[in-house]
């Protein structure tokens, strides 16, 4: 396993009710994956290689997954792009 290929993924359960504990347990047991946060009722944050995680999520009904994204604070101020030429 390469550390470079590990990313953080957000998984959300879209079925009825809270996320199934059996599904979360399978995610916990995914080899070389680290559960970062499983406190939300319908989501978990997992650090893992993408391939094995995608494979597992596809076998779990009702789940969607996406790499964790970072969104910047909005700002309309002008910015310098380069030093004076």
């Amino acid at each position: 396993m390469s550390q470079l290929s590990r990313r953080r993924f957000v998984l959300r359960y879209r079925g009825d009710g809270p996320k199934p504990e059996a599904d979360v347990e399978r995610l916990r047991r995914l080899p070389d994956a680290t559960m970062i946060d499983e406190s939300p009722g319908r989501m978990v944050l997992v650090e893992s290689d993408e391939g094995p995680l995608r494979e597992l999520v596809e076998s779990l009904p009702g789940w969607v997954a996406a790499p964790e994204q970072m969104i910047p604070v909005p700002d309309t101020r002008k910015r310098v792009k380069r030093s004076p030429g």
Binding site: V10, D37, M43, E68, Q69, M70, I71, P72
Partner: peptide, 8 residues
């Protein structure tokens, strides 16, 4: 910056 996980 904010994480998509934190926002959801």
């Amino acid at each position: 910056s904010a994480s998509s996980f934190a926002i959801a």
